[in-house]
Simulated scan of single mutants.
Amino acid sequence: MTASPPETRASLILRLQDAADITAWDEFAEIYAPVVYRSARRLGLQAADADDVVQEVLSAVARSVTEWVGRDDRGVFRAWLYRIARNTAIDFLTRRKHQPWADGGAEAVRHLQALEATEEVSSQFGMEVRREIFERASEMIRSKVSDTTWQAFHRTTVLGQSIEAVAAQLDVSPASIYIARSRVMKRLQIAVKSFEEISNDGL
């Protein structure tokens, strides 16, 4: 049985223009809401405020995605989303009631305001996106294979255990471990590519 990949590339981004398309928005939020939340926390916001940032970012995307799609200079979707998330978090930090909670206080706020969205600055956001993509893809594939097949992959590839040790633990042959691992890796590559095409696409 082949795992069905998620909606990919322009199709999902275009569907975000329809606020009533719950399936598209659920899929989008599944990946990006945790990324925006962790980014906001890293900038110094408390948990409740980071949750508010997530909601504001999703609302901003809903309001602006149609305009972004229509721009000739729109660039990469993930970069656009990063700018929205960063600006929203900074806005929270510069509000007087939030400043005492931000790590580094007013000095940190001034630093963030002056900071350009350089490759170095945005790389952490990109890493968070890739991490979330892998986790979501893993969850999807794990639900499609047997527990033995998943354990064969996870223990040898993620945990770094030897083929022989895992074969003994699972009471299967080493050849079965190789086959199971290869099967999961192929499915993961397809799923990860599908998710990455969403985040990297500029239409």
Rank of each mutant, 00 (worst) to 15 (best):
V57G: 01
H111I: 08
A102M: 05
I177D: 00
M127D: 15
Q113F: 10
Q151H: 09
R110C: 04
R71G: 07
S39M: 13
R71M: 05
L58C: 06
E164R: 15
I163L: 12
R78G: 06
V53Y: 04
E128L: 14
I133M: 06
N87I: 02
A60C: 03
V35K: 00
M127L: 13
Y82C: 07
I13H: 01
R83W: 03
V69Y: 12
R86M: 06
L188T: 04
L16I: 02
F134I: 05
A29N: 09
D52H: 02
S162I: 03
I179K: 14
E30N: 13
G160S: 03
E119Q: 13
A3R: 10
K144P: 07
E196K: 10
E132R: 11
E197N: 14
R86Q: 07
T66N: 12
G70P: 05
W80D: 03
T157H: 11
E56V: 06
A152S: 12
F125M: 04
I141H: 02
A40C: 05
H111Q: 15
R142D: 04
G126E: 06
R183F: 09
P6Q: 02
V65N: 04
G105Y: 09
A20N: 13
V54W: 00
L188C: 07
S162H: 09
W101H: 14
V36C: 04
W101E: 12
I90P: 01
